[in-house]
Computed example of a mutant assay.
Amino acid sequence: MSGIAYEVDVRSLDELSPRDLYAMLKMRLDVFVVEQKCAFPEMDGKDPEALHLRLLAGKELLASTRIIAPSGHDDPAYIGRVVVSPDHRGKRLGDKLMAESIAACERLFPDRPIALSAQSHLEKFYASFGFDTVSDEYLEDDIPHVDMLRPVPRASA
């Protein structure tokens, strides 16, 4: 694992400072729209109700995810907008980001599965965190994706 020191910060949109919100949205736009050449509505209306998990080194944003609470009694929590700053790739931050995001979901929404929509080329990455593919491949914003689900961990006997 990388020796990069980071802090984990989980906040609602209203709890982010304007500068922190700007940094997060800029990173998402730089990666999802510009780098991936995907013109789609990044601002999809889900951010105001979500929690935003960020990995920070001081004030510098290293990576972030969006966590959406389960909408119904049997629904999963949802991790989305998984992004690592291009300046910090290759430092295993994606692994740390997913581990922290899963831990946050398990703490905030115990006994709930966790769902995500994975770009198909990252299916093995997410599988390494216990996610199972639960759909056929489909196009989302012209990028192949699959739905994945991480079941609730079984209690030790």
Rank of each mutant, 00 (worst) to 15 (best):
L116R: 03
I68N: 13
G94W: 08
L51N: 00
S135I: 01
M98E: 05
P41S: 09
P41C: 08
R19F: 13
D111V: 01
A5L: 11
R154S: 14
Y138G: 04
A5P: 00
A5C: 10
G130W: 10
K96Q: 12
I68E: 13
S128F: 02
D147V: 00
D147C: 04
M24P: 00
R154A: 15
D20S: 15
L21K: 11
D136V: 01
A69Y: 02
Y126L: 04
K59R: 15
L25W: 04
H145W: 11
Y6S: 12
R107S: 15
C38G: 09
H52T: 07
L61G: 08
L139N: 12
V83K: 04
E7Y: 01
A57P: 06
K91P: 05
V152S: 02
E106C: 07
Y6A: 06
S85G: 07
E137T: 09
A157G: 13
E7W: 01
I79N: 05
D147A: 07
A50E: 04
S135E: 13
L21D: 07
S71V: 09
E49D: 15
E140K: 10
A104K: 13
S117E: 14
V146L: 11
F32Y: 14
E42L: 09
A5N: 13
S135N: 11
K26L: 12
E123C: 11
P153F: 12
E140Y: 09
R107L: 14
Q36W: 07
R81H: 11
G3C: 09
A69K: 11
A104I: 00
R11Q: 15
F131E: 01
P48N: 06
A57E: 15
I102T: 05
S128D: 12
E7D: 15
R54G: 03
G45R: 02
E106Y: 01
L62W: 02
M27L: 14
L21T: 14
D147I: 00
T133V: 14
V84S: 08
L13G: 01
A157P: 15
F129W: 09
E42K: 04
I68S: 11
G80N: 06
F109Y: 15
T133A: 09
L116V: 01
T133F: 12
E49C: 09
L55N: 04
L51K: 11
E15H: 14
A99T: 12
V84P: 05
E106A: 10
E35S: 12
S2N: 15
